[in-house]
Write a protein that binds this DNA or RNA. Structure first.
Lengths: 151, 151
DNA sequence: TATAATTATCTTAAATTTGAGATATGTACC
DNA sequence: GGTACATATCTCAAATTTAAGATAATTATA
């Protein structure tokens, strides 16, 4: 196959290996998360709040790419579990913040170490230098794919 | 931050940028797929059959990482749409193959070009050399994550 | 100010996915 | 042959997710 031909199929192959890598890496983290009684979406919401502080529901949904209906559903569940609370925004009364409770913060702090270990195990096939290169490329890829996605 | 500390967080960051890249790249392909009246899982099944030929249901599920119940459901839908047929295996009567119909093959052939364009658009933020490097790293990452995942 | 357009959240029904277990078949071993 | 274990598909209920539209609040514009 010519160099030309090789390049013509690169995008397709990149898509394939990206999907495969994502699926198998998340297989590790999903199993770990479920062991703590959460599903991946619930964990995603808690993780955003844990690292970024209180966030409007809307913005949480944007960060983890789920629908508005799903955000309502998941936040309801987490509120029932008393891991977070809803706080109406005083400046803009359409907006509602989600904020971790003390219980939620402690819970996240308690499961994060094993979550991190699961990730390290999942990606340990790359050495530090390769990880650095992969981070650089994936950052660029993700950023550009987002920019090129027009509603 | 020390080099040591930087490396300690590499795995976490790799996970983050991998998820972000995957989510935004698939946002492109998912929209494209839905325009043809399919959901991503249905497309995934058809794509496997299109590229690999008739496959036992079990093996389709393994390739695209979905549950056995889901495979039955999706194959039912595709069979109703007359895009594929079930074919019992003569050698092993537990096994059922899925095989594209002529309609299914033609359909895939008709949507694949625009699917490919959507992918090319999604990953066009990387130049050919970067794509090659990313493919190499993601291939290694996916393979090792799969190997390290023990049931 | 009034009107229109936009935004954030929620509601509801339908679609999708999973998980547990049922059924039937195949394989290994005694 | 018979028994235990493994495998492939399917069934069914419950969990999750989406899509469309309702409601309320905000912003932009005439």
């Amino acid at each position: 196959m010519s160099e030309e031909q090789k390049h013509r199929d690169d995008s397709l192959q990149l898509m394939v290996v990206l999907a495969r890598a994502y699926n198998w890496v998340t297989a590790h983290t999903t199993r770990e998360i479920r062991q703590h009684g959460l599903n991946p979406t619930e964990f995603g919401v808690l993780e955003v709040l844990y690292h970024k502080g209180p966030q409007p529901l809307q913005q949480i949904g944007e960060k983890i790419l789920i629908s508005s209906g799903n955000i309502t559903y998941v936040v309801d569940k987490l509120e029932k579990k008393q891991l977070l609370v809803r706080k109406p925004c005083a400046e803009d009364r359409r907006v509602i913040y989600a904020e971790l409770t003390e219980k939620g913060t402690k819970f996240l702090a308690s499961i994060f170490p094993s979550h991190k270990i699961a990730i390290e195990q999942a990606v340990s096939g790359l050495d530090p230098e390769e990880k650095g290169k992969a981070i650089e490329l994936l950052k660029k890829l993700g950023r550009s794919a987002q920019e090129r996605f027009h509603k």
